[in-house]
Simulated scan of single mutants.
Amino acid sequence: MDILIEQEVELHQYEIRQSKTDIERLIHPSFVEVGKSGTSYDFDSIIEMMEGEEPSSTRIHSQRYECIHLEPSVQLLRYESALVSEFGEVSDFAKRCSIWVFTGTCWQLKYHQGTPCSPFELEHN
């Protein structure tokens, strides 16, 4: 589902992560995350973490999206991600999964997990 990939990529953008309106549109109030570090977050703690972020020239690269239909209104989105510095250095490789739910008006992220993985080749989107 293209909309889920678009919304996932939106959440990778600093400007979106700093907008309370966008965060409330994209993230479900009962959101839970198990981060790549093993740290757990809920809606309030993820908002607090994002509010503390600083602008960076490092970007998140994501690829190989796969959408798995769990229920008509529940979708599992799997993909790979890595950080790419302004100098092209690649680090923090991870496999990620997100569960998106349709609330009747929009899709919202309800669960996210990142797991460190071995380096992989970056595909150019």
Rank of each mutant, 00 (worst) to 15 (best):
E89T: 14
L26R: 02
D22N: 10
G88I: 13
S73D: 14
S30V: 09
S91A: 15
E86D: 15
S40E: 15
T115Q: 12
G114F: 02
W107I: 03
F43C: 08
L4I: 12
L11V: 05
Q113N: 12
R64E: 11
I16V: 15
E6C: 07
D22T: 00
C67Q: 11
Q113C: 13
R17S: 06
F102R: 01
F31M: 06
F43Q: 04
F31E: 00
E80Q: 13
F87D: 15
D42R: 04
F93Q: 01
S118I: 06
V9G: 02
V90G: 00
L11Q: 03
K20R: 12
C117K: 04
E48I: 07
E33V: 05
S19R: 06
I5Q: 02
S98P: 05
W107M: 05
R17E: 03
F43E: 05
V101G: 08
P29V: 06
S118E: 15
S19D: 11
S62M: 06
S118L: 14
F93R: 02
F93E: 02
L70E: 07
W100T: 03
V32L: 14
V90L: 11
I23V: 13
T115L: 10
T105Y: 08
F31S: 02
Q7T: 00
H61C: 13
Q13P: 04
V74E: 01
Q63D: 07
F31Y: 06
I68C: 10
Q13K: 13
E33S: 08
Q75M: 14
I3G: 07
H124E: 12
D42Q: 10
E123K: 15
G35H: 03
A82H: 04
E123H: 12
Y79C: 00
E66H: 12
L122R: 05
F120W: 09
P72R: 07
D44V: 05
R25N: 10
E33K: 05
F93K: 01
Q13G: 03
C117R: 03
S57F: 11
R64L: 09
V90W: 11
F93D: 01
S73Q: 12
D92L: 08
S37Q: 07
M50C: 09
T105F: 07
C106S: 14
S81C: 08
Y14F: 10
V101A: 12
Q18V: 02
P72D: 10
W100A: 01
P116A: 09
H61S: 14
I5G: 01
Q108L: 08
L122N: 04
N125D: 15
E89H: 15
E121N: 10
L26Y: 02
P29S: 03
L26T: 00
H28T: 03
G104W: 09
L11W: 02
K110H: 12
Y14D: 04
G104S: 06
R17W: 08
E54H: 13
A94S: 15
I68E: 12
C97Y: 11
Y79V: 01
S57P: 09
P55W: 10
M50D: 02
I3W: 06
S40R: 15
S56D: 06
Q108I: 09
S118Y: 10
Q7K: 03
G52F: 10
